[in-house]
């Protein structure tokens, strides 16, 4: 089992292969359908995508209970982000985490731009919550669970799915 820091360095990505079980620690940002749409609008308007160089986690958490930083936070289905991922890769978001298979165009773009996609374990929301040490809303708070949250994570398990 490999231990990897996020955001993931391009040189580290080169050492990964499909099927590797990894534990991620560091910083990542949640983004799902609605946030992707807004991020694409920003890219089109400004020429730069927010969160360039960062790791995106396709997830929309449950609200935290008092004394907690986040609620259950497992991965959502990756395929719904397939239309956005190639253009985000082209603009410097090289690592993503979700669940389930992805379109061929995403596989092609990951190879072209030297990215990586991980599968987290779907349905394991309570487990992944226990890997999060801090959580703050950074973009689009009006989206609620679909907002972009900055997460600090420790030993977050996932499997290299496309590289």
């Amino acid at each position: 089992m490999k231990r990897i820091s996020t955001p993931i360095d391009k040189e580290i990505i080169k050492t990964l292969k499909k099927g590797d079980i990894v534990l991620l620690s560091g910083t990542m940002y949640t983004a799902r359908d609605a946030a992707h749409k807004k991020m694409l609008d920003i890219l089109r308007n400004t020429g730069e995508v927010p969160l360039k160089g960062q790791t995106l986690y396709y997830a929309g958490p449950c609200p935290p209970k008092p004394q907690e930083c986040v609620g259950s936070i497992g991965p959502t289905s990756s395929y719904r982000m397939d239309d956005y991922t190639p253009i985000f890769l082209e603009n410097g978001i090289l690592s993503t985490i979700g669940k389930g298979q992805r379109a061929q165009k995403v596989h092609d773009a990951i190879k072209k731009y030297g990215g990586v996609h991980f599968d987290a374990i779907g349905g394991a929301g309570a487990y992944y919550k226990s890997c999060v040490t801090s959580c703050e809303t950074v973009f689009f708070p009006e989206l609620g669970a679909e907002a972009v949250y900055k997460l600090e994570i420790k030993d977050f398990p996932c499997i290299v799915s496309i590289v």
């Binding site: 099927g19 079980i21 997830a59 929309g60 958490p61 449950c62 609620g71 259950s72 936070i73 497992g74 959502t76 374990i121 779907g122 349905g123 394991a124 929301g125 309570a126 487990y127 919550k129 226990s130 669970a145 398990p157 499997i159």
Partner: peptide, 26 residues
């Protein structure tokens, strides 16, 4: 890898129950 995923699902059920957290965020 599959055994690893199943282990996490089983641990998840345990953590969810002990911490009264939703099994899945959905």
């Amino acid at each position: 890898a599959t055994a690893f995923a199943l282990d996490i699902m089983i641990k998840n059920a345990d953590i969810a129950k002990k911490t009264s957290s939703p099994l899945c965020q959905d």
